[in-house]
C-alpha cells in the first residue's frame, strides 16, 4: 500500500469542490453586483433577479458532488476503510475530478456574466426573465457535461 496514492486521490476530491466553488463564488458575485444596482432603482424586483443571481451557484454544488463521488469511490462512507491505492490509481482519480472542477470554475464565471446581463434584461423587461434564465442555463450545460465526464471516468476506474 502506498499512502501517496490515497493523498493524490484526496487532492482530486478537494480540487473538485474548491475550483468549482471558487467559480460559483465569482459568478454569483458578478451577477449580484449588477442585481444590487437594479435593486437600488426598484427593490420590488428582488424575487425575480434572485433566481438569475443564484444560477451560477450550481457549479459549486456539482463540485461538491464530485468530492462526494470521489470519497464514495474511496469507500469513506459505509465502513470500507481498508483503502489501498497505488500512486497511479491515485492519479486516475485525480484526473477524473478535473472535468467538473475546471469546467465548473470557468463556466460559473461566465455564467455569472450572462446572468448579470439577464438581470439587466429583467430590469428593463420583467416579462423576459425566463429568456434570461434559459440563456444562463445554456452556459451551465458545459459544467453539467464536466460533471458527467467525472461521473463516467470515476465509474470506469478499477480499484
Amino acid at each position: 500500500m502506498d499512502p501517496i496514492g490515497l493523498a493524490i486521490a484526496i487532492l482530486g476530491a478537494a480540487v473538485s469542490a474548491f475550483l468549482a466553488g471558487t467559480g460559483s463564488a465569482i459568478g454569483i458575485a458578478t451577477a449580484a453586483q449588477t442585481a444590487n444596482g437594479v435593486l437600488s432603482e426598484d427593490p420590488s424586483k428582488f424575487g425575480r433577479v434572485l433566481i438569475l443571481v443564484a444560477m451560477p451557484g450550481t457549479q459549486g454544488i456539482y463540485g461538491l458532488l464530485g468530492t462526494f463521488l470521489v470519497l464514495m469511490k474511496l469507500g469513506f462512507f459505509g465502513g470500507g476503510s481498508d483503502v489501498s491505492l497505488t500512486m497511479w490509481q491515485g492519479w486516475q482519480i485525480f484526473f477524473a475530478a478535473l472535468p467538473v472542477a475546471i469546467a465548473g470554475l470557468f463556466s460559473a464565471i461566465h455564467q455569472g456574466r450572462t446572468s448579470a446581463a439577464g438581470v439587466e434584461l429583467t430590469a428593463k423587461r420583467p416579462e423576459a426573465m425566463i429568456q434570461g434564465i434559459i440563456h444562463s442555463a445554456l452556459v451551465e450545460t458545459y459544467a453539467i457535461f464536466g460533471l458527467l465526464a467525472t461521473i463516467l471516468i470515476l465509474n470506469g476506474i478499477q480499484l
Binding site: 450550481t58 454544488i61 456539482y62 461538491l64 458532488l65 462526494f68 463521488l69 462512507f77 450545460t141 453539467i144 457535461f145 460533471l147 458527467l148 461521473i151
Partner: peptide
C-alpha cells in the same frame, strides 16, 4: 442526443447532494 445526458448528471447531482446532507 448527448445533450440529453444532462438528465443523468442533474439527477445524480440531486441524489448525491441529498446523501451528503444526510451524512
Amino acid at each position: 442526443i448527448l445533450s440529453y445526458t444532462r438528465l443523468l448528471a442533474l439527477g445524480m447531482a440531486t441524489g448525491g447532494i441529498a446523501m451528503v446532507i444526510n451524512v
